[in-house]
C-alpha cells in the first residue's frame, strides 16, 4: 500500500507479509553415533509473518531550505512449523558453542521462533535459593534446559533526516533493533580472564554466594535437607575464576547470552554542492564535498557492555547459524571521511 499526500510531502508505505519457507537446504549437526557428524538436509517449514511501515515527510520546504524526516518500523513473527525427517522430539540444533564448563545451543523447535537458546543452568530449591556444593560453588545441571530466550529480534526501525539550505545538506541516520539474544564469546572470555567488570564483585575479596544453600543430607523420605552455605569463594586459589567462568557467576551458560537490542547513530554527513556558476568557469557539471562520520555511536542494552550486537562473526555455516552470536570479534570502529564528487 502506498499513499501520498500534500503534493508528495507526506508519504506512507505499508507492507504486510505472510510467507512460508519450505525445504531450505541446511547442514544439520547429528549425533556421531549415526556414523556422521553432519547431514545436509532440507529444513522443514518456517513461517514469517510481519509488517513494514515507512513514513516519509517533508515538514519544511521553502525556496532555499528543505527538511526531510523519514521513519520506518518493522515487526516480524517467526515460527518453526516443521522439522527435518528422522528427528524425534520436535527439536533440531542449529548451532552451539561449548567450553569445558558450559555450553550454549540454539535450537529450532516446532511452535517457537527459530533459535531458542538452551544451556546448562544452576539448580534452585523450591523457595528460590541457589544450591551450591561443598566447595561453595553453584551446582550447574549436566542436562541442558530451555532459557526462554531466543535469537530472533522483535522490532526494527529507523529514523533518517536531512536539512538542506543554500546547497549545504546535513543528514543523519539512526536505526534500532529491539529484542532477541545472542551468545557472546567475548563476554565468556572476559569472565575467564577476569577483565569483565562483573568479576570485580565485592572488590575481589572473598565472598559467599548470596542466597545460597548446601545439601547436608536427606530426610526420612529421601528428600534433601539444605542448610545455609557459609563456604566463601576466594581469589587466590582459583575458585574466583571457577565461579565467574565455570559457573557463569551462578547463572550457568545463560550468563553468556546477551541482549542483542541496540540503537545506532549510523551516519552523520555534511555535503556542500558548490554553486553552479563556479562550475561554468571550471567546465565541470558539479562538485560536491562531503564530510562524514560513520558508526557514530552505539547504544546497547544495559547488560551489554561487551560487544556491538551487529558483530555476528560466528563462523557457523549458513545464515541461520551465523545469527547464533559472536566469536572473539573485534570491536567495531568509528570512521571519519571526506569525499569529493566531481561530475563532468
Amino acid at each position: 500500500m502506498n499513499l501520498q499526500f500534500f503534493g508528495g510531502r507526506l508519504g506512507l508505505d505499508a507492507t504486510y507479509y505472510h510467507r512460508i519457507t519450505k525445504d531450505q537446504i541446511f547442514t544439520l549437526p547429528v549425533d556421531p553415533s549415526t556414523g556422521y557428524n553432519t547431514m545436509v538436509t532440507n529444513f522443514g517449514k518456517v513461517r514469517n509473518t510481519g509488517f513494514e511501515l515507512v513514513l516519509n515527510t517533508t515538514p519544511v520546504k521553502t525556496k532555499n531550505f528543505q527538511w526531510n524526516l523519514d521513519f520506518n518500523v518493522a515487526r516480524n513473527w517467526n515460527t518453526v512449523l516443521e522439522l527435518p525427517d528422522g528427528l524425534d522430539g520436535g527439536k533440531s540444533i542449529i548451532e552451539g558453542f561449548s567450553t569445558s564448563a558450559d555450553a550454549v545451543y540454539a535450537y529450532a523447535e516446532v511452535g517457537k521462533p527459530m533459535g531458542e537458546f538452551y544451556t546448562n543452568l544452576p539448580q534452585y530449591t523450591e523457595d528460590g535459593k541457589i544450591i551450591v556444593g561443598a566447595d561453595g560453588q553453584p551446582i550447574i545441571g549436566a542436562d541442558i534446559e530451555d532459557t526462554g530466550k531466543n535469537m530472533q529480534c522483535k522490532w526494527t526501525g529507523g529514523i533518517s533526516t536531512s536539512l538542506s539550505a543554500y546547497g549545504v545538506t546535513l543528514s543523519a541516520t539512526l536505526d534500532a533493533r529491539l529484542g532477541g539474544y545472542m551468545f557472546s564469546r567475548t563476554k565468556n572470555l572476559m569472565e575467564f580472564t577476569g577483565n569483565g567488570v562483573v568479576t570485580t564483585y565485592n572488590g575481589r575479596n572473598p565472598f559467599v554466594v548470596p542466597n545460597s544453600v548446601v545439601e547436608v543430607g536427606a530426610d526420612a523420605e529421601g528428600n534433601p535437607i539444605y542448610e545455609e552455605n557459609t563456604t566463601p569463594i576466594f581469589l587466590v586459589d582459583g575458585s574466583y575464576q571457577n565461579y565467574f567462568d565455570g559457573t557463569g557467576a551462578g547463572q550457568g551458560g545463560e550468563f553468556f547470552l546477551i541482549n542483542r537490542s541496540f540503537a545506532k547513530l549510523r551516519n552523520i554527513s555534511l555535503t556542500w554542492d558548490l554553486p553552479k556558476k563556479w562550475m561554468q568557469a571550471m567546465r565541470f557539471e558539479g562538485i560536491a564535498i562531503t564530510a562524514y562520520v560513520n558508526n557514530v555511536a552505539t547504544f546497547t542494552a544495559k547488560d551489554n557492555y561487551y560487544i556491538d550486537p551487529e558483530n555476528t562473526s560466528y563462523a557457523g555455516d549458513g545464515d541461520l547459524a551465523a545469527q547464533f552470536g559472536e566469536l572473539y570479534s573485534n570491536p567495531t570502529s568509528r570512521q571519519y571521511g571526506l569525499n569529493v564528487n566531481i561530475k563532468f
Binding site: V30, D31, D88, G89, I93, A103, Y105, I139, A142, S239
Partner: peptide, 29 residues
C-alpha cells in the same frame, strides 16, 4: 585439593557426562 562439587570428598568420578555432541543433537538422549 579442589574437587568437583558434584563428586565431593573421598569419591572417584564414576562416569563422564554424556557427550554434548550427542545430547545436544539426539532428542532420545
Amino acid at each position: 585439593f579442589q574437587v568437583f562439587n558434584q563428586v565431593g570428598d573421598n569419591k572417584l568420578l564414576e562416569r563422564f557426562a554424556y557427550p554434548e555432541i550427542s545430547t545436544s543433537r539426539n532428542s532420545n538422549a
